[in-house]
């Protein structure tokens, strides 16, 4: 896929995110929309995957540490062919495979159950370390929220990644600057994030998380870095693509009403 096609695919992802959260009547649109471009690049361009064979041993791994952005991952998986797109309507409903937060045993393409913040990055470290032990070339990606970086466990995991020189691990931080209680900076400041990651031994890259080509370049750079893990700080906009959701903490965990969804889909058309 070229850049234009990827941009179009990201738009499709956003449409599906709005549709499924609206159908569910609950969910997390803000952080799903901010992550959409990065997930598009990973799932439609950079990761080695076989949707027809989800457990293919040569696959790259993706761990959505910010598990509440499940709609973005579900949309990517469905559009990539892991399961029918129609199934997205079942999000958060009784007996659906598409639980509010991703479950590994249920959904094809989901390797790791996440949802409790701070844990996905540790699981990703376990995957990367295990692949190193076996001398396998698979790459591991994990995406964290910026608010998530307030969890102490994140820093335990980052310390581990650098200590064991996990250069097969790329940590992407969806830096949308908002969390449930408001601005990350005001709730509990995590800055200077780049300096902290650098001090923890990471190869740190800063990128516009909505610029497809910039994301592609960063991921390529991460893969060539040897001897240490890479952290990509992706500057993003929470609610990106829907005017009334952008930069509004209130849209962290609120589903749009049908008329709001209609407007959102018009903007994403």
């Amino acid at each position: 896929m070229d850049t234009l096609e990827l941009q179009a695919k990201a738009k499709e992802l956003r449409q599906e995110i709005i549709k499924m959260i609206t159908a569910a009547g609950s969910g997390h649109p803000g952080g799903s929309l901010s992550a959409a471009d990065i997930l598009t690049v990973l799932y439609f361009d950079k990761m080695n995957l076989r949707p027809e064979e989800p457990d293919w041993t040569g696959r790259d791994y993706f761990v959505l540490s910010k598990g509440h952005a499940a709609p973005a991952q579900y949309a990517a998986l469905a559009l990539r062919g892991y399961f029918p797109v129609e199934e997205l309507n079942g999000l958060r409903k009784l007996h659906s495979r598409l639980q509010g937060h991703p479950v590994s045993s249920k959904v094809p393409g989901i390797d790791v159950s996440t949802g409790s913040l701070g844990q996905g990055v540790s699981v990703a470290c376990g995957l990367a370390k295990g692949l190193k032990i076996d001398k396998l070339p698979n790459h591991v990606y994990t995406m964290l929220g910026d608010g998530e970086c307030q969890e102490g466990q994140v820093w335990e995991a980052l310390m581990f990644a650098a200590h064991y020189q996990l250069d097969n691990l790329t940590v992407i931080i969806d830096h949308n600057r908002l969390q449930i209680d408001g601005q990350v900076e005001k709730v509990m400041n995590i800055e200077p994030l780049d300096k902290k990651l650098d001090a923890f031994g990471f190869n740190v890259l800063l990128v516009n998380g909505h610029d497809i080509e910039a994301i592609q370049n960063a991921i390529d750079k991460a893969k060539t870095c040897q001897g240490r893990p890479t952290a990509i700080i992706a500057n993003t906009i929470k609610g990106r693509g829907v005017s009334f959701m952008e930069n509004q903490a209130g849209w962290h965990g609120t589903a749009p009403k049908p008329e709001e969804a209609e407007q959102a889909l018009q903007e994403l058309a």
Binding site: S104, V112, S122, C125, G126, L127, K129, Q153, E156, A157
Partner: peptide, 16 residues
Amino acid sequence: IAEQNMITVSAGLATL
């Protein structure tokens, strides 16, 4: 000295 990370890294290894 990081038990939370130990348990969760274990999850990643078991996934493999």
